[in-house]
Nucleic acid binder design. Structure first.
Lengths: 336, 336
DNA sequence: CTGAAAGCGCTAACAT
DNA sequence: ATGTTAGCGCTTTCAG
């Protein structure tokens, strides 16, 4: 199978009867250089006629930029999260002509992790960490070596630089205010796990409750035990002993919210008229469920887009140490 | 932020007191060229001392290969599938020093789809389609232009070239034989969907039943209606009216199998002693469930690995038109 | 066994 | 307004 001979800018130049430099000027719209309209046309025509595609590798070499960024993520991130963020990343990169190189192996030994090797060998110009847990030494290494990077994470522990963080206070307030406005008197928070992610959600919720101008008659925390059957039992018992006071449930994950929806259905509890359900988190099924699930969700697409844009800025202008905070959203659907 | 000055092979050459060519010979282990051991050592030492990393872009330019392949997939692939396949792809690429470039936008207009643009501009050397539905014109374009590609798909319709396909006959036979050996007399296939994927699974199952040397006393198909509640009701009714004959259920998706597990638990049906459950498909939760779910699964990792290897072969040796068929596996766990 | 030199395709001073 | 030219960092004949 013969490789079809590649046409180079030289070929275009010859075809158009100009020099290679002119071709470059025209095709890159170099500013500060003015080209006679007819020359420009000739070049454009020749390029189209020959089906010319600039050799990105050669360009990269000359510019000393690979025009690609490395995206590294942990294996355990869920598809929807990752894909949605990637979509944002792509949309930020595309207009600037950058591509995405996947880095899948994070070695414990920093210098051997894929993203560092790729950076060292000029394969990528910067690194975007997506929901990746990176040891502190790795971060120090990046900083020490002036390697451009940005971290995207909705549940960051400490204060760091070069980070896309998120804030859920407004979304929480909106959700609670909505419930309040509907006349809900009793709200229960279902706490199903422990760990950074859950602790944060729980914390945010309790703070939001404290901020309420006109408080609920009741605000409880229900901690759900581990184990399929236990969860079901706990939820079932809680729902069946629920009085007639208009109530709402806040679930710390979408999975738990689906359980609540299920058990409520079994018990004949009408949603949302008798019970409002709100989840924290994103799921592919939230809007497909019946009733569709209201949720407080991280702005995944925007996180990807913003993170990628930050990274591009850092790479090009050497701006650094910036932190962007994006707001979670309260997406009301049928369940409340 | 200053870019730390990059060291080039020239620097290494100077440090080692040899020529650039020698550095290249040593570092690439060029065969057909013999190097005096002490020279080799000197070069290696100098490279390590200066922390030299070859500039991949320059290398690519010289070799006219980008050393990256494009992976394109549809947005809707589920996490485990895609990530597992990618792992296999990565493991195949890594030792050959190829990287993965993600191509996320498949335009209807072929020439504008990311993977084609990337190929045309030398960003990638070949294309790997992962569970992607590609229109026939796109394929024709690839073939016409001699663009190396491979398609990975576990449910291919027609016969095509450059494909990693799968075969589930053996896995099906193994599963059925296992049930038979256990003394199962009645087996029911739960059919929950329609479309290529489901049709294929259903078809494979019925053919496997026909192949059985010693048939089951009963073999039924139960078609499950759409809708959360309907599914539950159907499954529940079926299970509760189940006689005492040792039975087994084949579920066309893992989701459906989980439902069966649930309802059986509610009804106090012991698994696997009173009922065996086998799913078709892969889920992150199969081995986590209790009892863990037996399943017939596509060899995802191998599909990725094999696909990538095929692609590398096609790219390097211009071998073409090969088809590899990988076997699904019957993974027996606790549920049968 | 090793070195000198050409050149991959592109861009950007510097000339004209 | 456009052409000339010198590299970017690497590999690889071809000479020694």
């Amino acid at each position: 199978m013969d490789k079809p001979k590649r046409v180079s800018s030289k070929d275009v130049a010859r075809e158009a009867g100009v020099s290679q430099a002119t071709v470059s000027y025209v095709l890159n719209n170099v500013k500060g250089v003015s080209i006679k309209p007819e020359t420009r046309e000739a070049v454009l025509l020749a390029a189209r006629k020959l089906n010319y595609h600039p050799n990105l590798i050669a360009r990269s070499m000359r510019l000393k930029k690979s025009m690609s960024i490395g995206v590294v993520s942990d294996k355990n991130v869920s598809n929807l999260l990752f894909m949605t963020i990637l979509q944002g990343v792509k949309d930020a990169l595309m207009p600037r002509n950058y591509s995405i190189t996947l880095c899948l192996s994070k070695s414990y030994d920093i210098e051997n992790s894929e993203h560092i090797k790729y950076y060292s060998s000029n394969r990528i110009d910067g690194i975007l960490f997506v929901y990746a847990d990176i040891p502190d030494e790795h971060l120090a290494y990046l900083v020490d070596n002036g390697i451009p990077f940005v971290m995207i994470h909705s549940d960051m522990k400490d204060d760091m630089a070069n980070v896309v963080k998120t804030d859920m206070t407004n979304a929480m307030d909106n959700a609670l205010r909505y419930l309040r406005g509907k006349g809900v008197e009793r709200v229960t928070y279902l706490n199903s796990g422990s760990g950074d992610k859950w602790d944060r959600r729980y914390h945010e919720y309790t703070r939001a409750i404290e901020r309420m101008d006109s408080p609920f008659a009741e605000s409880n925390i229900l901690t759900v035990p581990r184990g399929e059957e236990k969860v079901e039992e706990t939820v079932y018992n809680f729902l069946s002993s629920m009085g007639s006071m208009p109530g709402a449930m806040f679930c710390d994950t979408t999975g738990l919210a689906f359980r609540v929806l299920r058990e409520a259905a079994r018990l004949g509890i009408k949603i949302p008229s008798e019970l409002s359900v709100i989840a924290i988190g994103t799921s592919r099924f939230s809007s497909l469920a019946y009733p569709s699930l209201s949720a407080i969700e991280a702005p995944l697409y925007e996180m990807g887009r913003t993170g990628a844009e930050m990274l591009l800025d850092i790479m090009n202008n050497s701006v650094s140490n910036s932190v962007v905070v994006l707001e979670w959203e309260f997406n009301r659907r049928e369940s409340c």
